[in-house]
């Protein structure tokens, strides 16, 4: 049997180990972030400055927001490969709408395009029972295609000053993308922990048949989960276009993998049913800190890719070890 030795016999034994594991589940990635931050702080005096920290967090914000939505998807045992393509399409749409209307409705419409794309993913996944990886592999391709069709392949230039603020502005001393990131996480934390919907997400991911047999409406829940991921991608797309001063149909490729990596690094099991939203935030912070620190240390970008890749594999390996321990 594949159980952790202490987990199979009685509850008593399990309890003794659970505390330790509970702490590692929740704190593991936090400790890792602290350790690499300390390392970078020692190796480079510019690392711990306010401006570098804000810079690093701003660069992390997009991945972190994508990872927040991805957390819902992965908690249900699914995956969303289309987030990078939605980022591009939502950014392009937001900039496109801003030519005709004020910034706020344009940004909302851009986000809504993301939500719609996610909704379609959700309906297809839940109704056809096709694996999410297939459905979103498809949408990853056709959404990117739509983004190219909308722009004719060229970037759309963003001229609206308030729209640009979304990516480059500040709220007090804090860049707006960071504020949005923190807001998203605060809201999602509460949803996952204190709402029926949030708990149902864990239940569907933990055991979808049991969820069905306890009367949980799996199809609408799943649709919402993918819609949430779409909304996050939409927000991220709008922010990215504001930072780039243009809606570009070719941005965001590979973002889905960074988001998945952040979620898994944060301790969420790819098999579903197990994980936390705070973990994903720290997973994203870990990746952000890593590239920021390596850049400060003048590690060439190509080498950074190699290191990042190894980290992703390690993350999946750790996930497997965790599952071996937790599934009885």
């Amino acid at each position: 049997m594949n159980g952790n030795p202490a987990m199979t016999e009685t509850g008593r034994e399990g309890a003794a180990r659970l505390n330790w594991r509970g702490i590692m589940d929740k704190m593991g990635i936090v400790i890792v972030v602290l350790i690499i931050s300390a390392l970078f702080a020692v190796m480079d005096e510019n690392f711990l400055t306010w401006s570098n920290m804000m810079n690093m967090l701003r660069q992390t914000a997009i991945n972190a927001i994508l990872a927040a939505g991805m957390t819902f998807v992965i908690l249900t045992g699914g995956i969303d490969l289309s987030v990078g393509a939605i980022v591009a399409l939502a950014g392009v749409s937001g900039v496109y709408f801003s030519q005709w209307m004020p910034a706020l409705p344009a940004m909302l419409l851009g986000t809504l395009v993301g939500a719609a794309a996610g909704y379609v993913n959700g309906v297809l996944t839940a109704k056809t029972k096709l694996p999410a990886i297939i459905v979103t592999l498809g949408s990853m391709t056709y959404l990117r295609g739509i983004a190219y069709v909308v722009t004719g392949g060229y970037p759309l230039i963003l001229n609206d000053g308030s729209f640009i603020k979304m990516g480059q502005g500040y709220l007090g001393p804090v860049p707006i993308p960071i504020v949005i990131m923190l807001l998203v996480y605060a809201v999602f934390f509460v949803i996952l922990k204190y709402t029926v919907f949030g708990r149902n997400v864990y239940m569907i991911g933990g055991n979808s048949e049991a969820a069905f047999l306890t009367g949980i409406r799996v199809v609408p829940r799943m649709t919402w989960v993918y819609t949430i991921s779409g909304i996050c991608s939409g927000i991220a797309g709008v922010i990215l276009s504001a930072r780039l001063l243009s809606g570009q149909p070719n941005v965001g490729s590979g973002y889905e993998l960074d988001a998945i990596a952040a979620v898994v690094l944060g301790g969420t099991s790819l098999a579903g049913g197990m994980g936390t939203i705070v973990g994903s935030l720290f997973g994203a912070l870990f990746m952000g800190t890593l590239s920021n620190g390596l850049t400060l240390l003048s590690v060439p970008y190509y080498w950074q890719l190699i290191i990042k890749g190894i980290v992703i594999v390690l993350a999946i390996y750790i996930d497997r070890l965790r599952q071996r321990g937790a599934r009885g």
């Binding site: 709402t195 029926v196 708990r199 149902n200 864990y202 239940m203 933990g206 055991n207 048949e209 049991a210 969820a211 047999l213 306890t214 009367g215 949980i216 049913g273 197990m274 937790a326 599934r327 009885g328």
Partner: peptide
């Protein structure tokens, strides 16, 4: 396979049907 949410708490496994009423 059909009843337990294995990774969730004992408590939540018992209250799952009443979540709606308790919210």
């Amino acid at each position: 396979e059909q009843a337990l949410f294995l990774q969730m708490g004992v408590g939540e496994n018992m209250s799952v049907l009443r979540l709606k009423d308790l919210s």
